[in-house]
Nucleic acid binder design. Structure first.
Lengths: 111, 111
DNA sequence: TCAATTGTTCAAGGATGATTGAAATATGGA
DNA sequence: TCCATATTTCAATCATCCTTGAACAATTGA
């Protein structure tokens, strides 16, 4: 992941509606949720739902597949992980007390 | 961390300059870096540096302390961790195969 | 106190992003 | 084919964000 992708990823999360959509999909798991169901879950009009889903997908944070008339969206866990690792890599100049780029480990470490 | 704080946190990261500043501070470690040094590292004017540092601090992602004429900024590792945990909590509806909210673990898990 | 250093605040501008409703596209069944 | 369902695209409007330069504030040493 490069800086441009990371900015796009964080920008996708930097909006109330999209953050709610992503959390819904993170909770839903790999099977995903149809666009219409996402929209009605959050009380949104279809065009608004579609706009935000497109932004999240452009950022790579979610993926879609068509199933009959529905389009099913699901979280891209690998991309979410890359985004977090981008943020935390080289933490504390690679201090050996820090075992990995994993944030919860950082929380317990010498930082 | 609530949704509003999370949106503010991600918004702080959703900008090329601020992301570069935060990564610089994450790498620098707990001792931090003076505002002027941050600005000259990234080739920025003082007002621009100050604007972005203020946004990052308002989001709680960095903290500042004055040392003589300089203002030293450092990353708030605890807040960064909270932000990541907010994103990943309840992943896959709490599937027991997932041990914690830690993204690298999620990457290896049934998701 | 005066001057130099270091950062912050402010207003104006140009650019980017979100919401809405209407129209368009895609799919499946009668 | 025709219609209903499901979703996307588009243009217009409104709001928000970023940059710049100039002025302001805080600190230190001569």
């Amino acid at each position: 992941m490069d800086e441009g992708q990371a900015v796009q990823g964080f920008a996708a999360l930097a909006q109330e509606t999209r953050l709610a959509v992503l959390k819904l999909l993170v909770k839903a798991g790999p099977e995903g949720v149809a666009a219409g169901a996402i929209g009605s879950s959050l009380g949104m009009q279809p065009s608004r739902t579609s706009f935000h889903l497109a932004q999240l997908e452009r950022a790579g944070l979610i993926v879609s597949r068509r199933e009959s008339r529905s389009v099913i969206y699901s979280a891209s866990y690998a991309q979410l992980t890359s985004l977090i690792q981008f943020l935390m890599e080289d933490c504390c100049a690679g201090d050996p007390r820090i075992v990995s780029g994993c944030a919860p480990i950082i929380a317990k470490c010498a930082c």
